[in-house]
């Protein structure tokens, strides 16, 4: 897998996958739906799928001395690497916002979602949606990208909307406190989202491997 990941990084990856990691910097933006940053991170990975398809990467990879299905696992490994980097950037900035900048006026009076553990949990759910909606959709054919990404886009929009709306529900405004209130609950939700991300990605990878094994290239 190390060799395949090296191949993904050196040959298949679009520079945009790295550039769009900057989407995680949106975590610092006040008055902006910061979960869109997670979408941009995924959008960057989408570009690598597109670049790989145009470079005929799948045929090149399946002819290498690896199992055909490992081609799928390599795509997941690269995707998770980018998502992990995006998550770490967002987590570091969330920590900054919740400590050093917790009293900053733009965050105190922020009508939209503040950076909190709940935000990070939603970020992981968006990543899970990408891994379980877009990637298995792509590996149904090995070349169709549009509709799988559209389906992911719809799920992503719903998740962003849910994240933004949650703190407006009665009794849930504490979710949006800039310094973090109900931290125990929020961290519990983040832990649950991490479990969902890990299990969801593993399950989606298995489905994608099976689908890819079945198709004729």
């Amino acid at each position: 897998m190390k060799k395949l990941l090296n191949k993904e990084i050196r040959l298949s990856a679009s520079p945009l996958s790295w550039i769009f990691l900057a989407g995680a910097l949106m975590t610092l933006l006040p008055g902006y739906p910061i979960l869109v940053g997670a979408f941009f991170v995924c959008f960057g990975v989408f570009h690598s799928f597109q670049t790989a398809r145009e470079a005929n990467d799948i045929l090149y990879t399946v002819l290498l001395p690896v199992k055909k299905a490992d081609c799928v696992t390599a795509k997941y490994a690269f995707t998770c690497l980018i998502q992990l980097l995006g998550f770490l950037i967002a987590a570091a900035l969330t920590a900054v916002r919740m400590t050093l900048l917790k009293a900053a006026a733009p965050y105190v009076h922020n009508a939209l979602m503040n950076a909190t553990p709940l935000f990070l949990a939603f970020m992981l759910l968006i990543f899970t949606a990408f891994n379980s909606v877009f990637i298995p959709g792509f590996f149904k054919t090995g070349y169709k990208l549009g509709f799988p990404f559209l389906r992911f886009g719809i799920v992503c929009l719903l998740l962003i909307s849910a994240g933004e709306a949650l703190h407006y529900f009665p009794g849930l405004s504490f979710f949006n406190a800039p310094g973090g209130e109900g931290l125990g609950l929020q961290c519990g939700i983040l832990a649950a989202a991490t479990v969902i991300y890990v299990l969801g990605t593993f399950a989606a990878c298995r489905v994608s491997r099976k689908r890819f094994e079945r198709i004729d290239l």
């Binding site: 090296n6 191949k7 050196r10 040959l11 470079a55 001395p65």
Partner: peptide, 26 residues
Amino acid sequence: GFAGGAVDYYKRKPIKKLLEVTKRFY
């Protein structure tokens, strides 16, 4: 070894890089 006619992949990557990546698998 398989050669399916002309190389039809990674047409915009230097051959050197293609060889470097490929050789690691063998």
